[in-house]
Design a protein around this nucleic acid. Structure first.
Lengths: 145, 145
DNA sequence: ACCATTTAGATATCATGCTATCTATCTTGA
DNA sequence: TCAAGATAGATAGCATGATATCTAAATGGT
């Protein structure tokens, strides 16, 4: 997250950056990018939270759902697809299991691995959330265009 | 933060969003925005962390430093300028005070308020970090252009 | 003047990100 | 074949975001 409510003016950036051979406009673009994304993420988190989820839990479900030709992934495969550390995935799995959104069972061929599968409840949830998810994204793109 | 390493393809989004009257390209743009910003923020956090700071602590110092015509702000003014909750600002203040980057003293006219000021050590730190900060922003803009 | 309300900030507690480390299982090469 | 190393995942503990609630000081209407 980027935590600045009001971005510095170009003039202020010149003052800071002027000496350092980076054009102020590039800096403004970078800060604007982070600010827009942060506002979007805040709104998404609030949306997910109102449905007992979080962005991460949602994406955890999505990466399983979107996998072509398969209906389950191992914990490691999920970790590969999500940009968070392993322990976070492990804990998120525990929560989602507790909430009845996924089931996990040991792999038949590798007793270290775990196969994670979505429950019907999770499929129903995704179906319910996706339209609003997309319309929030569209609205935020619009609003900050 | 946005935690998806690989964005869904346009086709996959059509599959999800197609039914819901939002153009897939808009969704891709939104996801790309969040992904770019997240990578930038990750890199910044790692940069700040290698200097014993965090993005928030850095911005806390910056908002005081950049204030025109004043060399101090109250805790409430800092909270207004940063997009984080009050308790986070209070704790960050304690840490920065402990590290010798700011001093805080009660306001003369309002015994509830606290005036926060940068130390010379903080000014020196900002001067040292800003060039690299800007060049990281520029580099990331470049890389994901 | 005085009590109700507002405001500034701090404290308590929770959720969730991280790194470091541990256990269990699989693989590999002498 | 079996010990050394690699790999899958879990656990421990820290850092830092959030909300709810508390205290102390200021303010304002009667």
């Amino acid at each position: 997250m980027f935590f600045l409510k009001t971005l510095p003016s170009a003039r202020m950036i010149e003052g800071y950056a002027g000496a350092h051979d980076v054009p102020a406009e590039t800096i403004i673009d970078a800060l604007t990018l982070m600010r827009r994304a942060s506002q979007m993420i805040r709104r998404l988190e609030s949306f997910f939270s109102s449905h007992g989820l979080s962005q991460l839990r949602f994406l955890f479900l999505i990466v399983i759902d979107r996998e072509p030709d398969r209906d389950m992934l191992t914990v490691g495969e999920i970790t590969d697809r999500l940009d968070v550390a392993g322990p976070v995935v492990a804990r998120t799995l525990r929560v989602l299991e507790g909430d009845g959104y996924v089931t996990a069972e040991r792999d038949e061929n590798d007793a270290r691995a775990k196969q994670v599968k979505l429950t019907p409840k999770a499929h129903a949830l995704l179906e319910r959330l996706l339209p609003e998810y997309f319309s929030i994204l569209a609205d935020e793109m619009d609003r900050s265009a």
